[in-house]
Structures are given as C-alpha cells and as structure tokens.
Write a protein that binds this DNA or RNA. Structure first.
Lengths: 181, 181
DNA sequence: AGTGTGGCATAACGCTGCTATACATGGCGA
DNA sequence: TCGCCATGTATAGCAGCGTTATGCCACACT
C-alpha cells in the first residue's frame, strides 16, 4: 500500500508543468498555499463522493455504503488522504470537511428517525464511525495492516458501532454487509 | 491540542546539545536514522506504559485500562505520537510496536478464556480497538475533535467493540467504565 | 613512548522555499 | 490606432536545509 513519495518540490513541480516557480506564488501563496489548496480539493472530492451515495430505505445500509465510499476514496489516493489530515486544522475552507461529515450525520439522523437507533446522538454515531474508519484506513495505508484488513475489520466495526447505537444486531449486520458491498 | 511544531532542524539540534552536526552522523545515521530512533523510543515507551498496566480479574476492564494508558501516552506527547506513525512501516526494530500490540492481544485472549468474548479472534478484537483508538486520538491531536471527545467517545467505542465480541453489554459497559477510569 | 584509530569541528556542495528585479504581453482609454 | 498601465512570468540571488569531505585531536593499545 505504501506508494513512492517523491518530495514534491516547488522547482520540480514548476518544471513539470512547464512554467517557473513564480507561478506558484501568483496562483497560490507559495508551497503552503498550494498544499492548502490540495487538501481543500481532497476534502471537496471526498464530500462529492459521499454525496453521490444514494440514500435507500435502509439508513444503516447507507451508513455502511458511506463508509465504503469513504474508504475507497482514501485507498485510491493514499498520499492525498494523508496530506488532507496533515494539517486539517488550518484548512482554507473547513466547510468542505464539514460537508463530508454532514452527509454521515444526516444518514445517522435518518437511522434514528427510522427507529433503528435508540435515542443516540446522530453526530456522536457519525463521529465514532468516522474515527474508527480513519484509524483503520491510516493503519492500512501506512502498511501496518494489510489491505485485506479493511474488508475484515471495517464491517465488524460498523456493526459494533451501529448495534451499540441501538440497532438490532442481526439486522444491523445484514444492513452493513449490504452497504459495504 | 495542536502544539507548536518548530522544524527540528539538524543544525538547531546540534547547537542545542552543544556539538556539531557530525555527531548526528556518527551516533545515528543522519536525520533519517535519528527520526527512526525517535520513533523507536516512542514505541518502546508505549510498550512499557502498556506493560505497566496491571492485569486484574476483569480482562475487559484491563482492555479499557490499556486503551486509557495508550491514549494518555499519545496525548502527553502528541508530536511524538504523530512522528511514530509517520513512517511506522520502516521502524528500525518493529518488535517494539509488536510488543505493544501483543499486550492488547494478550488481554483480549484473557477475556476470551474468561468467557467474556465468544469465539472471537483476540487479535481481531485488539486490532479493532487499536484502529478505533488510533483514529480518535489522531483526530483529537489534529484539533479536528476537542480533547473532551476522548472521554466522550472512547468508552462508547470500546463498549461497542467488546460487546460485539460477545460480552454482555451492561456488564461490558461497567467494565469499560472501571477500566477507563 | 610511539602509533593508530575513532569521533568531532570546519567548510563546502547541492538542494530547498522564497523574494527582488526586469521583462513581456494583453487590455483599455484617448 | 497608438500609447500606457497593469498583470503575470522568467531570471537571479538569498538564507536555510541535509549531507559529505577533510583535517585535527585525543584516547587506547602495543
């Protein structure tokens, strides 16, 4: 899973696109601004990917599908995913990250309304799902865990979290299996 | 939670300890080797902290206590924790990380023997606990989640994971509460 | 006591991100 | 249509980085 991480230098980048280093300073604000734009674009793509997950009549299935889409996005571009969270605190426009999280919260809210979750805070469920997925994904793209660990542990973790939120365990497991695909 | 991250340059470091830059090349192997030694020491300390957690007659409580010790270690030195996982794949001696993980697996094994977990693979339970904690901790020390999120979500996540492993939910919650302290 | 070896200070090299300056090019007003 | 202004780019140079080559010094061993 570990991909070659060439240093991404300002000069190499300028030469690559056939311009001089100054272009990076006019269009972005130096390397700092460029990395900020990269992280921003990463979260924008993530939010789009999550928003593209169609809602069904099984909100728990949807939550699992969102998790799968999230993981797929991260695995497709692991270097980008790492960069996104390298300085997520000073994102130029944090709303993009908020939008991605909001999709998760909305799905958890639908699960609550549908009676699948019992008096649980949708934001808390989404946070727990997010944190678990984040950790698992990072361990995978850091070559600590093999890539197969995702399919082995993610559904189990999601089932554990959603069941703890009140869903009926067997039904929850079925929904997660369906959503994770 | 975000702490000031001065660049940690070779020159500044050499001046700080009153020597020249060459010392870093004789004792370590340049900056790369030095960072490797730092990560190594980080995992060694983590393993020691986990090994110092005394086992009780409640293995689920112990698992939660291990989680709390793990989180405390990370929160005490967030920059070190980030550095540890920055290149965990090429750790000089991976056994230190393996030892830390082994403590978790052993506790999960005791929970299985004690009949608290039902036919679950101890390593799988430990992996899920580790991944979840890792993600939650990273989000906290990256200032995505407030520090209070640890006490709010970690026990809930642990209870969810251990209950899914077969433990009786109310009893599990009590054990986690006791262990998390 | 003489010799050899290991470790450190010094200086220099190539690279980095960044900035100051000069030039070119495109649009707008007279 | 001509001239001017402004915007963006190329060039050159700066300080800083990690790394390496060289020379020296101090300690240990015969």
């Amino acid at each position: 899973m570990l991909v070659a991480r060439e240093p991404v230098t300002l000069r190499a980048l300028a030469t690559r696109v056939g311009t001089s280093t100054m272009a990076v300073y006019t269009h972005f604000d130096g390397m700092t601004g460029l990395w900020g734009a990269v992280r921003q674009e990463g979260f924008a793509r993530l939010a789009r990917r999550l928003a593209d997950v169609a809602a069904t009549d099984d909100p728990v299935r949807d939550l699992a599908a969102l998790g799968a889409a999230y993981a797929a996005t991260a695995i497709e571009h692991p270097a980008l995913y790492r960069a996104m969270f390298d300085a997520v605190a000073d994102l130029p426009d944090p709303e993009a990250a908020g939008a991605a999280f909001g999709v998760l919260v909305a799905a958890a809210g639908r699960a609550l309304e549908a009676g699948r979750f019992r008096a649980a805070d949708p934001a808390a469920v989404a946070t727990r799902q997010w944190a678990s997925g984040h950790g698992l994904i990072l361990l995978v793209i850091s070559d600590v865990l093999p890539r197969t660990a995702l399919d082995e542990h993610a559904p189990a973790l999601l089932t554990a979290i959603f069941s703890a939120a009140g869903d009926d365990p067997p039904r929850c497991a079925a929904s997660v299996r369906a959503g994770w695909g």
